[in-house]
Design a protein around this nucleic acid. Structure first.
Lengths: 129, 129, 129, 129
DNA sequence: GTGGTCTAGACCACG
DNA sequence: GTGGTCTAGACCACG
């Protein structure tokens, strides 16, 4: 795996969000073992301290668990994962809607803009996706 | 004017975005004189250097112009203002849509979530909801 | 007359150079009367203090003279004008050549670059200009 | 390294141009680590904030990159460096040629003046001069 | 250790 | 009065 990092956000946050998305989307499933700090640090060419911090935060959110001597695992609590998914989606939505309103867009505008944007970007393949 | 600042973003950026919104929304009109560094610093209780930086960046974006010895003014180029409005809206939109897709939401879901959110918050969509 | 000003150089210097060029090129001839501070200030929409300073500096260089109660005049000393022309050309040349050498260009390169640039920009109209 | 500063130009600009030249000329190579803000500030006896500003601008031009927590590096994009070299040379050339024309020099004059100047200063043009 | 941000305040050119 | 630059130094997130 390779990641490209955005300079305006701490790397640990970027990796953290990346892993949360992997879990939410099901690429990492409940109970799956997670790469060790060292493995991930080597893979991403990132300071192990940074990975360590990433995992710490993921644990604090309950989406990752440490089993002593065995390593780290995705939580088996599917409810936790759903909660975090909703939380992340809610954050995205709030930031977007509030931002658009601050720019003077009305509710109607906002809906049409989104509608246009998403249909524009995947109008082909109506059945498949 | 008073502003409350969010600790997770540089103050100069927060003021910058605030002023861009004021201009975009028309509270500051093309050609209007802008408070001087010293005035704004006093008003917001922020160090003049921080305000200086804010203006520097606004100028770099072309939405504010300096007239030597006279002060700073909102650009009279309305096109520039429109461009920046589109840019800001586009950024918000992209971040939102991309973020939602990374969480596994389909285009349809995204549109309905937004529709529900904005009609919920201002009751305009009388019939549907 | 209208002038567009560059923000990176004091306006008085820009006007000063403009007037020196007018004199050097012969648009203002030795002994010609020069616009008054007020006239020029009005014409250029510039603070009279700035024009005042411009004239002060031009006098210091001897290219402009004040006749009490009569106004300001281009010097009748043609030698002074020639000297200033050489000075200005010399400054331009030095700054250019030194700058190019600091970028690593060799003498040969510099000559060819200039040759190409000037013939490129006026290759047409060999007889006329 | 020591630098002597010219009072007519901001120090941060002077250092900026100095560093750009170092990179263009190859004394600092693509990917090289650059002195930290603190080191350079100590070396040049300049306030760290001024150095900070220098680097900020260099980064905006893409010739320098920050790696979070690790330091700053010369960009590895050699194309960027070439572009900046051309840009700087073009600026010098334009300012020179336009300035000379504003003084009334013809294309031919300009070329001969340059030719004379550079061969005069390094004796390479053995036969002609 | 490294860069990013901010405060406090000075000085100056410019208009 | 206005902006531009600079100094001196603090604090913090990040790696």
């Amino acid at each position: 795996m390779t990641m490209t990092f955005d300079n305006n956000q701490p790397i640990y946050l970027q990796i953290m969000n990346y892993m949360k998305r992997q879990i939410i989307v099901g690429k990492l499933k409940p109970g799956d073992k997670i790469d060790s700090v060292r493995e991930l640090a080597a893979e991403l060419q990132i300071n192990p301290n940074t990975i360590q911090r990433t995992f710490q935060e993921l644990e604090r959110e309950g989406i990752v668990e440490t089993r002593r001597g065995l390593g780290r695992y995705v939580t088996s609590e599917e409810a936790t994962i759903m909660t975090i998914k909703k939380e992340m989606a809610g954050d995205l939505l709030d930031r977007f809607v509030q931002g658009m309103k601050e720019l003077g867009f009305e509710s109607n505008d906002i809906v049409s803009i989104v509608a246009e944007a998403v249909t524009g970007s995947d109008a082909k393949g109506s059945g498949k996706q």
